[in-house]
Amino acid sequence: MLHIVNKSPQEKNCLDACLGVATDGAAVLLIEDAVYAATTGHPAAAKLEQAQSRLKLYVLRPDLEARGMADRLIAAVTAVDYGGFVDLAAEHTCQSWL
């Protein structure tokens, strides 16, 4: 399963909800405002670091770059471009945490 999260974790609980439901081995992709979760100093970053042993974590690079956060990406999360997003979606059934 590919879980797609697009909300800032300081605005909505979608990331927490997703991490609670995602089973071991699942992929999680952060897009749009969810990309802030994967940046240094953000309270959600610690949660992602904790989850990295059981989940594959990705962030959409163009959304990170658009928000001026590209240089603050944490090591637990892998940046992908839209092509990488397509590859992940092709590989898994998708659930969007709207």
């Binding site: 697009n6 897009i31 749009e32 405002d33 163009p62 471009d81 839209y82 092509g83 997003f85 397509v86 979606a89």
Partner: peptide, 15 residues
């Protein structure tokens, strides 16, 4: 942003 994200996803998938 969702309409933009959807469009860019479609474009990348077609490519």
């Amino acid at each position: 942003q969702s309409a933009d994200s959807a469009y860019l996803f479609c474009k990348a998938a077609l490519e």
